[in-house]
Design a binder for these strands. Structure first.
Lengths: 166, 166
DNA sequence: CTCAATGCAAAGTATTTGCACGCTC
DNA sequence: GAGCGTGCAAATACTTTGCATTGAG
């Protein structure tokens, strides 16, 4: 915790920026909340503790956190950017349930190794990668089996499009 | 080619929709262009052949193409949705060069197999996945080596943030 | 006392929607 | 002829920017 704050202040100093109460509070709330927070989410949480903080400042501070290596952007297809902890939270990938929105994090060394091999074969120098698997989580599958509505045989005409992979 | 058009018209009929000149043209231009087209790109190409086509119609028709299984959405972090051919273009992943924007498509059965195994371990039912590797392509690496400017030892203070993975 | 930070409002993007008119089926 | 399709303009959602004021170093 304190470690992250130190990193942030170092980053601020090195970049010739200034330490402010807003930035400290935003970082603090971010660190306390182990979730995939959108700017809006964080804004609301911060606002609850200190109403005179603007949305803009939250956006700007989140960028600072990314620069400082404390946060990482992720997008799950609901149109908004989310942020997760990056410090001592090594790279991982996500499964995203398109029914309930739940996300499951996972890591596979094998997967990483194969990616490295592919990339090397193309003389491509990777800086970052993102694997997202969209689908239905175990809980939602069960829930659907129980309320097995729509036993009707007639197919629906208009299909829902595939989930956005934005 | 004609095969895709037939699929489209079947989809249109089955859904109780109507065949129009605009839709036919948009599909035609899309099929002729083997690229990752944004709605804007496609709009411009279509407009060049038939000026009285609206942006809205292109957006709506692209959705239809996705529904019909002819197109697939992809996002590379420049904030806009792109579309690639989906019919007889089986699943593949992308490397995206953050210098020149070039994309390299690849496919690895091994990669897919490992993903399937991971997913199965979580009783997660995948519907779709997206792996994007961001980095610098071979050409851009070479280009940078040649114009080796910035031999200066002093580090720049403000870091560019990591590429968006939107 | 200087220059960065803040927060409001306004501007940007990318995409979607309301609606009157036009065109398929 | 009924109802979907079209294209414009307006609306939306998320994020960024301009600017005058406030505040940190």
């Amino acid at each position: 915790m304190t470690e992250e704050k130190e990193i942030f202040h170092q980053h601020i100093q090195r970049a010739g920026l200034k330490r402010t109460a807003q930035r400290d509070l935003i970082l603090d709330v971010f660190l306390r909340t182990e979730k995939h927070l959108s700017s809006e989410d964080l804004y609301r949480l911060v606002k609850a503790e200190e109403p005179n903080v603007g949305h803009t400042t939250v956006y700007r501070t989140l960028k600072l956190l990314v620069e400082a290596g404390l946060a990482r952007e992720v997008r799950f297809g609901d149109g908004r950017t989310r942020y997760e902890h990056n410090y001592k939270h090594p790279h991982h990938d996500h499964m995203i349930c398109t029914e309930c929105g739940r996300t499951i994090e996972f890591y596979s060394a094998e997967l990483e190794a194969i990616q490295d091999a592919i990339v090397a074969g193309h003389r491509f120098k990777p800086t970052q990668h993102s694997l997202r698997i969209f689908g239905v989580c175990a809980q939602c599958q069960r829930r659907k089996d129980v309320n097995s509505e729509e036993t009707s045989a007639e197919p629906r005409v208009r299909f829902a499009s595939a989930p956005n992979t934005q």
